[in-house]
Simulated scan of single mutants.
Amino acid sequence: MDFHNKKVLITGASRGIGKATALAFAAKGAHVGLNFKSNLVEAQKTLQELSGEGHSLFQYDVSVKADTKKLVDDFIAHYGRLDILVNNAGIGIFHAIDEVDFDTWTQAWDTILNTNLIAVANTCYWATKVMMQQGGGRIVNVSSRGAFRGEPVQPAYGASKAALNSFSQSLAKRLAPHHIYVGVVAPGFTDTDMATEALTPEERENLLRESPFQRMAQPQEVAHAILFLASEGAEYSSGTIIDVNGASYLR
């Protein structure tokens, strides 16, 4: 896969899957725009680790409607075109229906849907306008295994990712005539710093037992699937959802 001089925008790019994806694109010759919300220190560290030249930081909160347009406008002002958009930014909040009060419940739904679904839809809207004008492009959205198997203590998270899958496939159908190809990667639990910090030793052991590999996904493995969907030659895979869950959930 060669991405020489391709202009790539990745949301939620300072850590975890976003960072691994940025490193992978840069290693293949792309110019990468790293979007982040607030963690400037981590974003700068990631920027410094990217191989090659022509990479930049873009600090915008994609959960804010106006920021999605500003992000795309800023990216275009800097790079002149947008070849690949990776929507990776997402959030999960504990809100088990039998344990939380109603205010916690409704706030979790509002926050999660806004970040995991509406923000992606809005970013795609502005990116699509640019891609249509330039004659095409690629969009890869990061979903989750939870879209299929359910998320008992984070039902809004599972629902947001299921909706993201449907949204992505709707775009794949609508945008194919415009040479814009849309794919989805659905990771299982991925071994990132953020995930590790959130797990107790017992929870980690339970997760390891879910897969016959007896381990979690590595961010680089998720990035590999993202790069495939964004690559030339993968056009006929538009609308595809690639599971990266180590056979922990088969559908």
Rank of each mutant, 00 (worst) to 15 (best):
157 Y>P: 02
222 V>R: 10
95 H>V: 09
82 L>E: 04
149 R>W: 01
134 Q>H: 12
40 L>Q: 11
18 G>A: 00
229 L>S: 05
147 A>H: 04
236 Y>S: 14
69 K>T: 00
248 S>N: 06
171 L>H: 10
238 S>T: 15
18 G>E: 06
111 T>N: 10
159 A>N: 09
89 A>W: 06
93 I>R: 14
141 N>E: 09
109 W>F: 15
245 N>Q: 06
249 Y>I: 09
128 T>N: 00
58 F>N: 02
248 S>G: 14
149 R>G: 01
199 L>R: 10
20 A>F: 08
92 G>H: 07
192 T>K: 12
228 F>A: 08
86 V>H: 08
24 A>D: 01
78 H>I: 01
33 G>S: 03
100 V>R: 09
146 G>I: 06
183 G>I: 10
81 R>V: 02
3 F>D: 04
225 A>P: 07
85 L>W: 06
220 Q>M: 04
56 S>H: 13
74 D>N: 12
101 D>F: 04
65 K>S: 07
72 V>Q: 00
55 H>N: 01
189 F>T: 15
59 Q>W: 00
100 V>P: 12
197 E>T: 13
250 L>N: 11
3 F>V: 09
7 K>A: 13
59 Q>V: 05
177 P>G: 07
111 T>D: 05
52 G>D: 04
63 S>V: 01
26 A>N: 07
107 Q>I: 04
211 S>L: 02
235 E>L: 05
201 P>W: 11
165 N>T: 08
45 K>I: 11
178 H>A: 14
99 E>S: 12
137 G>V: 10
130 V>F: 04
169 Q>M: 15
132 M>H: 05
89 A>S: 13
19 K>M: 12
144 S>C: 09
201 P>T: 10
206 N>H: 13
55 H>M: 03
128 T>A: 01
70 K>I: 00
95 H>L: 07
54 G>Q: 09
35 N>A: 11
199 L>M: 15
181 Y>G: 05
149 R>L: 06
99 E>D: 11
33 G>K: 04
158 G>E: 11
249 Y>L: 13
251 R>W: 13
50 L>Q: 03
209 R>Y: 02
225 A>L: 09
182 V>H: 14
89 A>F: 05
162 A>W: 10
95 H>T: 07
63 S>A: 14
157 Y>E: 02
188 G>W: 02
186 A>H: 07
243 D>N: 13
172 A>C: 12
78 H>W: 07
243 D>I: 00
183 G>T: 08
41 V>R: 11
219 P>H: 00
210 E>W: 12
237 S>L: 11
36 F>V: 05
65 K>N: 03
5 N>M: 13
59 Q>F: 03
47 L>S: 09
229 L>E: 07
79 Y>R: 03
49 E>Y: 00
183 G>Y: 09
131 M>V: 09
114 N>K: 12
66 A>C: 04
61 D>I: 01
194 M>I: 14
202 E>G: 03
19 K>Q: 15
122 N>Q: 15
12 G>M: 06
164 L>W: 12
225 A>S: 15
246 G>N: 11
206 N>F: 11
133 Q>C: 05
123 T>Y: 01
245 N>K: 02
31 H>R: 14
1 M>D: 03
14 S>V: 03
247 A>G: 04
157 Y>M: 05
39 N>K: 12
134 Q>W: 12
35 N>R: 08
6 K>N: 11
244 V>E: 08
89 A>C: 04
206 N>W: 09
91 I>Y: 07
113 L>M: 15
107 Q>Y: 10
170 S>V: 14
24 A>V: 02
19 K>S: 05
